[in-house]
């Protein structure tokens, strides 16, 4: 279900917690599973739950509670733009509008070629860098002017 490499990475997470508390590693494990699979299908969540000896619904609770898990398929690249107030005051909304218009999609939509999904994000703890956006959950991009957005999209498109 998951690659040996992912399982090894999950084991590293498990080792951070006392042996009888494997469930603590579920956030890390779901993240690793998502990195491998692109999104979290039910079978993937089920697999992770069993791997950690927890009820599948308990793992689903976690996967559906935290925003960065995708329990629906997403495009190859997920772009999450912060539009919260501090960012909005420095162009967060304008940056999001620019991307929408560039990609021809709205929030929570994926481009027809399956390359990009756009999401509206909440505060990322980087308000001083507004406009900020997150690429594929793990790469934060700061001070995103239209030029930088163009460059980013071009790089991702390669």
């Amino acid at each position: 279900m998951l690659s040996q490499e992912s399982l090894a990475r999950i084991d590293v997470e498990v080792a951070k917690y006392p042996p009888e508390q494997k469930q603590s590693a579920v956030m890390g494990a779901l993240r690793i599973a998502q990195e491998e699979k692109g999104w979290l299908a039910n079978e993937t969540i089920d697999f992770v739950a069993r791997y950690l000896d927890m009820a599948p619904i308990a793992a689903f609770e976690v996967a559906s509670f935290y925003n960065m898990y995708d329990i629906e398929p997403v495009g190859k690249h997920k772009i999450t733009v912060c539009t919260n107030l501090p960012c909005a005051l420095s162009g967060g909304v304008h940056a999001a509008e620019y991307i929408k218009q560039k990609l021809g999609i709205d929030f929570n939509e994926t481009t027809a070629d399956g390359k990009f999904t756009l999401k509206e994000g909440e505060c990322m703890g980087a308000c001083g860098d507004a406009p900020v956006l997150l690429v594929n959950n793990h790469r934060m991009c700061s001070w995103m002017t239209p030029e930088k957005i163009d460059q980013m999209l071009a790089d991702l498109d390669k």
Binding site: A55, I57, A58, F60, E61, S64, F65
Partner: peptide
């Protein structure tokens, strides 16, 4: 004894 129901989403 078995969690068959949960409260999903938030």
């Amino acid at each position: 004894g078995e969690m068959e129901l949960g409260q999903a989403f938030r």
